[in-house]
Structures are given as C-alpha cells and as structure tokens.
C-alpha cells in the first residue's frame, strides 16, 4: 500500500500537469478558432451526455494542419528553424571542440578551475547573457564603436537583427552544453594511445584524426544533440537578436498565440514542431543508451 502511494504521487502529478495538458493541445489543434472565451470551438459539453460527446468529436478536423501546409510562412519557418539550429550546432562544435581539448590536456591542478569557468555561465541568467549581445552588436553598440574608433571600418556594421546575431546568440548560450560532454570523453582518453601512434610513425595531425576524434565521438554526438534540440524551438534568442526576417517556429507559435489569438493554429504549430523533434530526440536517446551499455 505504501509503495502504491509512493508511486502514485509523482505519477499523478506528471499525468495531470504534463500528459493531460499535452493532450489538450492536440485536441485544440483539431478545433476551430472562434470569437469567444476561450477563443476556440467546439466546447465539450458534458451535460448533454453521449450526444454532446458525439457532436463534439464530429466537429474536430485537421483544417489547421492543412492550413500549415498551404501558407508558406509555416513550412518556411520550420525549415529555417532547422537550418539555423544546424548551422549553430556546427559552429558550436568547431568553437567548443578546441576548448574541450585544451581543458582535457591542461595540467591536472588547473582542470577543476577550468571546469568551473565553463559551468559558471550556465548558472547566470540566460536572458541576461542573450541581452549582453544586444549591447555589443547594436548599431551604436560596443563592437561598432571599437571598430569605428580604431579605423577598421568607417560605417557601423549591421549585425544586430540579422541571422548572424542569432547564430552568435545560440552558440554563446549553448556552448557549455557542447564543451562538457566532449571534455568528459577526452578526459577519459589514454595518452599512451597517442604516443603509440606517434612511435609507429603517424604525424600528430593524423594521430588526432585517427585516435582522438574517434574516441571522442560519443561526446561530439551528445554535445551536438544538446545544442541542436533546444535551438530548434528557441524563442528568446531570435526575438531579441534576430530581425523581422529571422523566421523561427518558436517565434511564430508565440505570435499566433499572443498577437493573433489563434489558439487552435498555435496548438497545431506546437504538435508539428514536436513531431519534427521526435526524430532527433529518439536518435539521441538511443545513442545515449548504447553509450551506457558500453560503459557497463
């Protein structure tokens, strides 16, 4: 009996506040927008019993999903979100790998400090770290002032409100997620493997390609997914740093909901976004499970 209560408390909490809300989203995505409170129809009327239930289901349809495919704003936003997330992930890998590598090969007594320095930004506010780039990249911002004052450029660069600013923002805020898994893979690596390769005549570069990279593959995969998955649905970074031309689906969902008050369409956008993310999430989960099995 006690075991049952132990299981039931967190179970019911998650059912009520995670699964049920999600089912409501699915249901509303099949409804129609209406000028009412709440602004969608049909409403489920249980007082009419079975007939009410039947009438309710007969009015649900896939109209919103059909609309998502006809209006090019939506599929362009999905594609653009995936593209921005992919480019940012690759940039984060190229920037994060040397940092992780440098940390893993640093003197032992330095490593805890370096690790703390990577984790520290994670504890500081995400919103503030994104905002900092607004101060730096603005037309009259720090970067342009420095570049103009030193005579490198004569006209201020337009970086804020472009996709470039969004790339910088995503790479900056998610970089620790790339560095940490790669670092933990590289830290476990046995140095004698590299020495053996060099003794056998490999150059340092080919030893790096043939030994270090394959051995850190697990960390690279984990880091890429940890950056890619949250980037796709990102709202704050494109909203603060991107321009009006920066299409990202998290932003479209927000606007449909708060500005256009089209709850059914916002729900449909959410359902499709999740369907797109399920594939990378499953691949990630499987590669994590496999890594765990290898570890045991």
């Amino acid at each position: 009996m006690r075991r049952f209560t132990l299981i039931a408390i967190p179970y019911l909490w998650l059912l009520a506040l995670f699964l049920v809300p999600f089912l409501i989203v699915v249901k509303i995505s099949l409804s129609d927008v209406a000028i009412a409170r709440p602004p969608y129809m049909p409403q489920l009327d249980l007082s009419e019993g079975w007939a009410g239930l039947k009438a309710f289901f007969s009015e649900l349809d896939f109209e919103n999903f059909a609309f998502l495919t006809t209006d090019e704003l939506y599929w362009k936003s999905y594609l653009s979100s995936l593209r921005i997330a992919l480019i940012s992930t690759l940039l984060a890998l190229v920037i994060g790998y040397p940092i992780a590598y440098g940390m893993a090969r640093a003197p032992d007594e330095w490593r805890p400090t370096l690790l703390m320095l990577v984790i520290l930004p994670f504890w500081t506010s995400f919103l503030i770290r994104v905002y900092a780039w607004k101060v730096i990249l603005a037309g009259d911002g720090v970067l342009n002032s420095v570049l103009v004052a030193t005579g490198i450029i004569s006209e201020p660069l337009q970086i804020l409100n472009t996709n470039t600013a969004v790339f910088i923002g995503i790479v900056y805020t998610y970089l620790p997620f790339m560095i940490l898994p790669i670092y933990s893979a590289l830290e476990k690596m046995d140095d004698s493997l590299l020495e053996a390769a060099e003794d056998l005549g490999a150059s340092r570069l080919s030893a790096f390609w043939m030994i270090t990279i394959p051995l850190s593959k697990g960390g690279i995969i984990a880091g890429c997914f940890l950056v890619f998955i949250p980037s796709v649905g990102e709202f704050v970074i494109p909203e603060l740093l991107g321009g009006s031309g920066t299409l990202m689906i998290g932003r479209v969902l927000w606007q449909e909901f708060f500005n256009n008050l089209d709850w059914p369409l916002a729900s449909a956008v959410a359902v499709v976004l999740l369907a797109i993310l399920v594939i990378p999430i499953m691949i990630f989960q499987r590669s994590e499970d496999r890594a765990r099995e290898r570890g045991e």
Partner: peptide, 25 residues
C-alpha cells in the same frame, strides 16, 4: 515506461510547447 517517459520528455520539450500546454490546462 510511461512514467520514465514523462520524466525525460519535459527535459527536451521546447519551452513554448510546455508553456502553451499548461496555459490551456
């Protein structure tokens, strides 16, 4: 299985979807 799914899913769920679904609830 459902229980462990509900533990891990919110970690990867985009915030806009979590927020939207709770508001609708």
């Amino acid at each position: 299985t459902l229980f462990s799914g509900m533990i891990y899913a919110p970690l990867v769920m985009p915030e806009v979807i979590t927020g939207l679904s709770l508001l609708l609830l």
